[in-house]
Write a protein that binds this DNA or RNA. Structure first.
Lengths: 235, 235
DNA sequence: CGGCCATTTGAACCATTTCAATAAACGTGG
DNA sequence: CCACGTTTATTGAAATGGTTCAAATGGCCG
């Protein structure tokens, strides 16, 4: 029991349904695209900075990240990509990638070239706005929050996003990444991230162990970092 | 002599012409909008986080910033807005502002509601892509660069952007902001920004005094921070 | 069992912050 | 045009948060 049926409604589809009203035609098109998703293993690149963007893709499962690599080996992860997130979601002609997209786990992604219904175009636009809001959140984290606050704020954001795709509930979610990866996103060293994690655990605020995050009191954490849920539209 | 003619080609117009090929119709429409630009004095808000976005506006002159305010008084400036930049440039229905936009000097801005030619729509899309690239640059600055590198990188970005609008040349541009404002953008204290500025001056790399920035060797600065110019399209 | 990678720990070090005091520049009204 | 209060920039000294480097520990996979 509890084994997923072969065509379980994917988290990616759930997220898109949550951010825009999709008609049957759109859902059919999406399901067809998702059925033909291709898999890329961890550490492979889905897109490379400076290269031309071929088309929109949808993350169907797994974790990826947008990254900027510096000449001297430092790297900054811009944002995490989870099921339901889009890659190459641009609006102009012959776009160039401004960041590299890196698979952090095995990632399956679907080509959205043939998913261009009216409803889906609206979903893409909303997704873009949400993504922008997350970039602003990342800037604020890096610029003005302490290590503990950064981590709490990131976990709250991931929780909110994963919940949209049905991949988080009850203050818990799977986070199949290394500390070093999260450190690269938060502008910290992995050493300090490790210590910060222990601090959070000792304080009883949240923990991350064995690939699972538990947030003990979401409302209180939100207060602590002054966080409010992301909203990009009146609707 | 040297007094600007009443209808000098504005920096804002110059930037839009630089990022997309504009036909006469578009330019006429823009000029009409710019002629009717309205002025807001420093410290006033052009847009408030969480409120509905009314329509696109174009910064015609002056400096503004997108900002996030934290509950405890900390604030993070997300990005600077200069002539030719857009506000409220969204693609979906009933959008909400995800950041406050604050006038840093007196700012004049034009309503673009009636500027919807094909060429202008393309310009808006390209502008959006450029803005996103700048957000990524800001994330990298805050996450992985030292104070001196952050400052150099920001000045290089501003130089590049101002040059597009014809407002910078020869490694020099006007920067009519306080140190505290720039510190809030760079995630530093104004005290440390002041010290960093002195370091840069002593090293002969760049200086900012009396509202004017001078970059002494752009190519060398770019090497120092590992910076490459922003490109978002093959065209 | 052995090797590899991720995590933890400790100690020294450094970049940046904090707080407080001073100096300079600015605008405003008399 | 000067005197005023206010904002902005600078300086110093001490405290802090985060980094660095190196070594130890623990899991996991072959």
């Amino acid at each position: 029991m509890n084994s997923a049926p072969p065509h379980a409604r994917s988290g990616a589809l759930r997220r898109l349904e949550a951010i825009a009203a999709l008609d049957d035609l759109s859902i059919t098109a999406l399901n067809r695209a998702i059925d033909e998703a291709s898999v890329l293993s961890a550490r492979r690149e889905l897109m490379i900075e400076g290269q031309e963007i071929v088309g929109k893709r949808l993350i169907v499962s797994g974790w990826a990240a947008r990254a900027r690599l510096l000449a001297d080996g430092r790297r900054q992860l811009i944002s995490f990509l989870i099921p339901g997130d889009l890659i190459g979601n641009c609006g102009h002609k012959r776009p160039l990638a401004v960041s590299t997209v890196l698979a952090l786990t095995a990632v399956s992604s679907a080509d959205l070239t043939h998913c261009q219904t009216h409803a889906l175009k609206e979903a893409y636009e909303v997704s873009r706005a949400i993504e922008e809001a997350h970039l602003l959140a990342q800037i604020t984290r890096l610029g003005r929050l302490s290590a503990l606050e950064r981590l709490a704020d990131l976990f709250l954001e991931l929780y909110e996003r994963l919940a949209l795709a049905g991949l988080a509930a009850d203050g818990r979610f799977a986070l199949p990444l290394t500390q070093e990866i999260v450190a690269d996103a938060l502008g910290l060293t992995s050493v300090h991230l490790s210590r910060t994690l222990q601090l959070a655990r000792r304080r009883g605020e949240f923990e991350w162990r064995d690939g699972r995050v538990v947030l003990h009191d979401i409302a209180q954490l939100e207060r602590m970092v002054g966080r409010q849920p992301v909203r990009v539209s009146m609707l």
